[in-house]
Design a protein around this nucleic acid. Structure first.
Lengths: 118, 118
DNA sequence: TTGATATACAACCATTTGGTTTCACGTTAG
DNA sequence: CTAACGTGAAACCAAATGGTTGTATATCAA
């Protein structure tokens, strides 16, 4: 379990599994590209699939992984499904990395205190 | 390939593979914990292994994954290897996520411009 | 010197991942 | 109505992942 404070000083909890899924989903160039594209504008699955040298079904699977991580969501529109990137999930990942940053900064602060003592 | 500008306006390039490895390495709770611990202070492999309910060899493998992603480095000290977290690799990941943030922000800006035109 | 400790590494195994092809089904266009 | 389209989902496969145990090697302590 991970706990951090967001920009409004709200405490946010993320299970290890949720964090695993977010980083796992981002660990693939095709999936990162899908997130990038759908953050700026929605796209259908087959439209996305046109951009990659793999089968439609493979792209579909990547989208399933991204959806499981909350990085994109699907919205029905007739026979199409529009895929929309979710900036909040990206922010979650950012907050997690910020926490590491603070941990590291904490070490520096303690080092400074140590040096100040001498 | 990913390109972003760091805090000193330096252009930084990361191969897709490198980005893959960083996020992949962070997609495991044990590995994230190792990074967290070694960012504040160095630790030997066996000392780290004491904290997890898995074999020494399994922890060793996790450290190899982290090392491959540049998130930690090993430093020989007699028969021990001290593991040290690398904040720069964490920052790389942060920069990548910041890029997504800017992409998303760009969409908002364009929307604002569109509304301003009306 | 000898025994314990710290690490490295290989071999093995089950599960997951990332891809494929194929088929089914609802929706839209003509 | 019928054909084409967009999607979902199953079955299958090779490779990667995450774990294990076992063995080898180097170093430290007594």
């Amino acid at each position: 379990m991970v706990v951090y404070q967001d920009s409004h000083s709200q405490t946010v909890d993320l299970s290890d599994d949720e964090v695993d899924r977010i980083f796992r989903a981002l660990a693939d160039a095709t999936r990162r590209d899908i997130v990038r594209r759908t953050l700026t504008e929605e796209a259908t699955i087959s439209h996305l699939a046109d951009h990659y040298e793999m089968s439609f079904a493979a792209v579909q699977k990547h989208i399933t992984v991204l959806e499981g991580a909350g990085l994109v969501s699907k919205h029905r529109s007739g026979r199409e499904r529009r895929i929309r990137g979710n900036p909040e999930a990206v922010q979650k990942a950012q907050h997690l990395l910020n926490a590491y940053e603070r941990i590291w900064q904490g070490r520096i602060d303690r080092l400074d205190a140590l040096l100040a003592d001498e």
